[in-house]
Design a protein around this nucleic acid. Structure first.
Lengths: 247, 247
DNA sequence: TAAATAGTGTCTCTAAGACAATATCAT
DNA sequence: ATGATATTGTCTTAGAGACACTATTTA
């Protein structure tokens, strides 16, 4: 069924077609931890990796998905309900051996979302937010451990010079909250003064009125100016120290 | 063997499978210009976009290619003969409409190679090195104009803070040659002193003996220390000027 | 008023850019 | 020696980090 249904005149390639899937690595920060959404593979013995944890994803439906991005957005919406997350392509993984059902290529996206409100479908029995280092230690289905590692590396790398962590917070948020989010993702403390200068100089935040916390002075609330792209800073954090560490 | 190879028992998805291709954007610098390799689509009317220029690539051969990367490397080798180029994944493009033959996803890689020696198959009649801005103005097949634009953007972007241009030169090369290559890719002059400090501080070059040019003082020749990865600089070129330009 | 948190100022340091000065090669 | 090119040094400046200081809110 898969290959030539060449009724038509265009030359259809008579190669066997690989399986094609889309997977989404969905990050959030909740309880002071960076977490990733994992789903449980069906228990059925007819499925590969029954019962294992995996990244959310699945086959492209050529009748519903008009593009890879649409497909990723659809899967993200099904799992989290978010409609305007940060969603970028991470890369693709394809080989003869990564799926026992045959030659398979997956297109992987990575998404940043604010923590879900308690009401929302955070964990249907089949899905769960898992702290990333714990997730990396699990024996995930397929090559999803490699994919997750690549996603975490990309996230931590880009956080050094972009405004990505802002997409992990519900709006409006304060600069101290944003700094805390950076620190959670990077796993190290940042200097308050340098952090604020950097964020405000980058001009990607819009003021949204003061917010009172549980104690202490009220803080300015901010919203992301342009949710379609992250701001890029001219340098990484601690750039010169990184330099010396390499030696 | 764990995964029962049962012809029948694994649930095979009954989705129609998209077409799957791999394309490679191959850059080089020759005649003081950044060029990209284009190939001509076959003239046959049974093929999509007959006679149009396109990026080199084609369908995955699930019987020969063990992975996407292998497939890209194979296509690169067929076109240029290089075996140790710089090759990284650019991304994937997939939609219902990008190929008239049906839902198609392509995995795109981008490669940097030194200019070919005259003897080598630089231009079989069906392929040609084209200056990138001229290539961007051509009406390429499929969505290859979008893909090429993304590749050029990625290249120019990464050149600001990585050692990528070193992979465009035959080894050994000199620092003035490397600087010229950066300037060609970026399209603007760089300061000599700052450039040398940056390259040498990054520790990715190994000395390879002095090289005499046609005139003037001989220059130190260098080779790339680790061809498997590019060096990353802690800042972009002209970082603060870029900053002020944004305002 | 005290505790807690938000926000600012000052000083030092790294590395980039501008550009001048020096070194070495072919003829 | 001279012209050409390679290589180094000096000065200035932007922005990062360390850290002390001030400001504002709640209890």
């Amino acid at each position: 069924m898969t290959t030539q249904k060449t009724t038509a005149r265009k030359a259809m390639p008579d190669f066997d077609r690989p399986l094609v899937t889309v997977d989404v690595v969905i990050f959030t920060v909740v309880d002071e931890q960076l977490k990733v959404l994992l789903v449980r593979r069906p228990e059925s013995a007819t499925e590969p990796f029954p019962g294992r944890w995996a990244l959310p994803g699945g086959f492209i439906d050529v009748t519903r998905d008009t593009s890879l991005f649409d497909c990723a957005m659809r899967k993200l919406g099904e799992k989290t309900g978010f409609t305007t997350p940060y969603l970028e392509q991470l890369g693709s993984w394809g080989s003869a051996t990564r799926d026992p059902r045959g030659w398979c290529a997956t297109h992987v996206y990575f998404a940043l979302v604010p923590p879900l409100e308690d009401g929302e479908a955070a964990g249907s029995a089949a899905s769960e937010w898992v702290e990333v280092d714990a997730a990396l230690r699990k024996r995930l289905a397929f090559d999803h451990a490699d994919i997750l590692a690549a996603a975490v590396e990309r996230l931590r790398g880009k956080v050094e010079y972009t405004s990505l962590p802002a997409f992990l917070l519900p709006e409006p948020f304060t600069l101290p909250q944003l700094q805390r989010t950076y620190e959670i993702v990077l796993g190290r403390p940042l200097d308050k003064s340098a952090f604020r200068k950097r964020m405000l100089d980058a001009q990607f935040l819009v003021e949204e009125g003061s917010i009172s916390g549980v104690a202490g002075r009220a803080a300015m609330g901010y919203r992301i100016g342009d949710r379609d792209r992250a701001a890029v800073f001219p340098r990484t954090f601690r750039s010169f120290e990184v330099q010396s560490l390499q030696e």
